[in-house]
């Protein structure tokens, strides 16, 4: 187990930021820490990285307790804090060397690590530039290079793509995936697609507590609402049909259907949306029904519950 968090609670004065959370991160896993702003993601990360202690609870990183073996933990972690703070008046190479030396690297090892990180992160072209002159994308790369310079077992990245343009986001995500192959990575984000693009597993956190934990598919399964099927039917022109009285009941006969909504008609095309019970698949049934009734089925689609919906459901308090 790379990281083991147990009953972690953190108060800021009297305000509860993190409320009794526990989770494990397996070695080699890329874990997405997902939640709205202010949910407690950053606080949790600051505790794991030994920036500040928890009010209660414990964290172990690679078997070392953050309170008792803080230095061992810090050696094993590469950290990119929120907003990617950097020394703007240093050039990239100086900055990386500074970070490396503070991690105790020197001599030939220092040189080879610098070279490797500059290559991997694609910052060879800007290594002699002041960080203040770099674009956000390059700054993010410099921040990642800094976090990786001592070849840590665990990477903690707090919102690594915030503030980047779409192209830069894709680049940084690829970089994280690539770097993450040999590492345990925890990255936080409030953007869902980020998790879908990079993570093996996701923990959704809201209001200081964990509300969901699992792979993306698991989450989709667990939090699926009722099935929604949209239909478009063409009815025989010879018959005058009243959708409400003629068709509605026919659908209702299917045992798993919960509700049927009529979406109106346009040029003889009738639209319906049917909600069926969770986990059912009634498309075949609908098709048979349409054939036997002589309706022409022009369109039928099942809408899977999107993660977006899962996320919104879990993180909004009604």
């Amino acid at each position: 187990m790379a990281i083991a968090v147990r009953n972690l609670t953190k108060y800021y004065d009297t305000e509860k930021a993190v409320n009794n959370i526990s989770f494990d991160v397996k070695t080699g896993e890329i874990l997405g820490f997902l939640g709205p702003n202010g949910a407690g993601k950053t606080t949790t990360m600051k505790i794991i990285t030994c920036y500040m202690p928890p009010t209660s609870g414990s964290v172990e990183v690679e078997g070392f307790d953050i309170a008792e073996h803080s230095f061992e933990v810090r050696k094993k972690i590469g950290y990119l804090p929120e907003m990617n703070p950097l020394y703007l008046d240093m050039n990239v190479l100086e900055y990386l060397e500074y970070s490396a030396r503070l991690h105790g690297l020197k001599g030939a090892l220092l040189k080879s690590r610098l070279k490797e990180m500059i290559d991997v992160c694609g910052i060879a072209g800007v290594r002699h530039k002041d960080i203040g002159e770099l674009s956000k994308g390059f700054r993010q790369r410099a921040g990642l290079a800094q976090a990786m310079i001592h070849d840590p077992e665990v990477l903690i990245l707090d919102e690594p793509t915030s503030g980047l343009d779409p192209n830069q986001i894709v680049e940084i995500r690829n970089l994280i995936r690539q770097l993450g192959r040999a590492k345990t990575v925890v990255l936080s984000t409030h953007i869902l697609t980020e998790v879908q693009a990079t993570c093996d597993r996701v923990i959704i956190i809201n209001d200081g507590g964990i509300v969901a934990d699992g792979t993306l598919d698991q989450l989709r399964q667990d939090f699926r609402g009722s099935e929604k099927i949209s239909l478009e039917l063409k009815l025989p022109a010879t018959k005058i049909v009243n959708a409400m009285t003629d068709i509605y009941p026919k659908f209702k006969e299917i045992s798993q259907v919960e509700t049927v909504e009529y979406g109106g008609q346009e040029g003889g095309l009738h639209k319906f949306s049917i909600h069926a019970v969770k986990g059912s698949d009634i498309r075949e049934e609908i098709f048979r029904r349409a054939v036997s009734e002589g309706w022409v089925l022009l369109e039928m689609s099942r809408k899977a519950t999107s993660l977006e919906e899962v996320f919104r459901k879990l993180t909004t308090t009604e």
Binding site: R74, I77, Y79, P81, P85, L86, L102, H103, Q146
Partner: peptide, 12 residues
């Protein structure tokens, strides 16, 4: 700048 967070999470 927040760089204090980088500094204080290094092993020193």
């Amino acid at each position: 700048a927040g760089t204090i967070e980088l500094l204080t999470t290094k092993p020193l």
